[in-house]
Amino acid sequence: MTEAFPQGAVHTAGPDLEAAVRTDPGLMDLWAGLTPLGRNEFLCWVEDAKQAVTRERRIVRLT
């Protein structure tokens, strides 16, 4: 069973963002160490992208 993915205070991670973070154990540890409000800031930034290309680019920058 997969460990629950830490979400933000308001926003939740899409499957693409979750998969990107989970690919690197160190990054996953950093992500889990953020507060829900801190994670929420990153999630909001990714979710606010109007185009798929922008969303993908933001996920790459985050990872």
Rank of each mutant, 00 (worst) to 15 (best):
A13F: 10
A13R: 00
M28C: 05
A9I: 00
T23H: 12
T23S: 15
M28Y: 14
D48A: 09
R22C: 01
T2W: 05
Q51M: 04
L62W: 08
G33A: 14
Q51Y: 08
P25W: 12
V10N: 02
F5H: 04
R39C: 02
R55E: 12
A19G: 05
A19F: 12
L17F: 14
R55T: 08
T54G: 10
R61M: 13
R57I: 04
R58I: 05
T54A: 07
W31H: 09
D48F: 07
E47V: 01
T2L: 11
T2I: 03
D16R: 10
A52S: 12
L27D: 03
K50L: 14
V10K: 02
A32F: 03
M28I: 00
F5Y: 10
W31S: 07
T54L: 06
E18D: 12
P36A: 01
E18G: 03
W31L: 08
D24A: 14
L17T: 14
T35A: 11
G26E: 10
V10Q: 07
V10L: 04
V60H: 05
Q7K: 00
A20M: 06
A20S: 04
R22H: 04
H11D: 09
A49L: 05
D16M: 05
E56K: 13
A52Y: 08
A9S: 13
L34M: 15
P25Q: 12
T63Q: 14
R22L: 14
A32S: 15
L43H: 01
M1A: 09
L62A: 05
D48H: 08
T35G: 13
R57G: 11
T2H: 01
P15S: 14
D48P: 01
V21T: 03
V53S: 10
D24N: 15
L30M: 09
W31C: 03
L62R: 01
D16N: 08
A13C: 07
C44L: 13
T35P: 06
D48I: 04
N40M: 06
G33L: 05
P6S: 04
V21G: 02
R57K: 15
V53Q: 13
T35Q: 10
G38I: 08
A52K: 11
G26R: 13
I59V: 15
L17Y: 11
E47W: 00
W45T: 10
C44M: 13
L34S: 03
G38M: 06
E3L: 12
V53L: 11
A13T: 06
G14T: 09
L34V: 12
V21H: 02
L27M: 15
W31G: 01
P25R: 08
A13Y: 06
M28W: 11
